[in-house]
Design a protein around this nucleic acid. Structure first.
Lengths: 259, 259
DNA sequence: AAGTGGTCTAGACCACTCC
DNA sequence: GAGTGGTCTAGACCACTTC
């Protein structure tokens, strides 16, 4: 049985924070293990002698920190450690494409996860100002937009949207749902644009409601954003890929020369 | 005057979410500009005809998303866009050190911010298992630990903790508070370890209470973590640096060769 | 039906900011 | 003192899960 202790009403720290502190300590010390259920609201109300809103505020705090997940009708559970996937900086190495695998598939398999892709949508649109600038296109020039959602072991972990200039994608499977072996990059190289380098811009923030829905995460779980631009051997940008990843599911690795 | 519209009680979406949606839309469309004050709780209660907890839930949602900041006694304000700083992948280029600048100072000045460092602490400790592994030390071998907090325009943006093997740091200013021109890396090179490359591991998560305090951020603001390992020309790891950055204040840029 | 969390109401008192 | 948000109480009804 969990020793919940008591709160101190003369303490400056408000009761709901004290209750959150007590529960957080139990989680941090493993006395409440991942997947385990927290005491119910009713239990906490009785134990600490407070109103329902007070224990709900405490639990809300832990939810915001991403430590626990509430399941309507079942209870509140310590968030189970998700599979963390390390993305090495050589994940776009040509040898992977030569084996007919797209970057995500190759990397997921290498790390022992079952990869998946769904919600593939391909459209032809006018480039937004940001995309046009990165691809060095004139404003509103047309691009092929490919968006999809990636899964690991059946659970969504990342959404990605690629923008390829129409001039490059035209007449290739890039504008089809199925791009064939080696993915988009395979087809871009087939079209005569040998890839030379990528730039990646990484940041992190809280998800928008749409992103929460697509990634099936609650509020309080941050996402990493990664905007990758691919350049061919002539230094021409050939693709921009905008990805949103569940932050705690990824570690990105980069190699940086000292000069 | 802001047109707040009304909520629809027959809608499936609960009132507090509808109110949050309305306010979020005003923020997204710039009708509530950064720094601007939201209508007070009392105003929203009157306008929508709901209880106080309902408007507080709505505002709580926006706070969790990091869109607004509450100031006790003053009001709730749209979060002003923080100075975003782009960290280019050449930020550790030797030429910067030659100019006598540490990476943070050089980069901050280049992006037009007033850099600052405080809370410098230097200790001599036994290496933790993680640090020992990265530095290829025997368990509990001793390392110099340098922790500090970086400021931009007077506001904390990042904490950093460096671990340098005692064997390298001994008898150098690395073990002093003042490391001299070019920072730690300047001294490591002085000691005969020419730097060849770095690896960086990037992830993101919600801050711990300690980190919230050090970075002066509220709950609901995510942090990026960056663990950098520096290697000399012999492939020997000479430093591990563990940094925690306010996520929305940074964009990290990396250059990745296609092979 | 019983137990869980989700949402809402209508109050209360407090602490902080500004004038 | 007036206005703001911070915290708390004591209820209520609802939706979801499990048996």
């Amino acid at each position: 049985m969990l020793d919940l202790g008591t709160i101190d009403r003369s303490n400056d720290r408000p009761p709901y924070r004290q209750i959150a502190d007590i529960l957080r300590a139990h989680i941090d010390h493993g006395r409440l293990a991942p997947g385990e259920q927290l005491p119910s609201e009713a239990t906490l109300i009785d134990h600490f002698g407070v109103a329902r809103m007070t224990v709900r505020e405490a639990i809300k705090e832990l939810r915001t920190e991403g430590l626990v997940v509430a399941q309507h009708g079942k209870g509140v559970f310590v968030r189970s450690a998700p599979p963390v996937r390390r993305l090495a900086s050589d994940r776009f190495a040509r040898r992977h494409r030569k084996e007919g695998k797209s970057a995500f598939i190759a990397e997921a398999e290498a790390s022992g996860h079952v990869p998946g892709v769904d919600q593939i949508r391909v459209t032809n649109e006018a480039a937004s100002p940001e995309v046009a600038e990165r691809l060095r296109l004139k404003p509103r020039e047309r691009v092929i937009v490919r968006s999809r959602r990636y899964l690991a072991d059946g659970r969504p972990v990342e959404t990605a949207t690629s923008y390829i200039p129409e001039a490059i994608a035209k007449g290739t499977p890039i504008a089809e749902v199925n791009t064939g072996p080696g993915g988009i990059y395979g087809r871009i190289e087939d079209a005569g644009h040998e890839l030379a380098r990528f730039t990646e811009e990484v940041s992190a923030r809280m998800p928008t409601p749409d992103e929460r829905k697509a990634l099936e995460i609650g509020a309080g779980i941050p996402v990493m954003t990664l905007v990758r631009t691919a350049y061919d051997t002539n230094g021409v940008p050939v693709e921009v890929c905008d990805t949103v990843k569940i932050a705690h599911s990824f570690v990105l690795e980069y190699d940086v020369p000292a000069q």
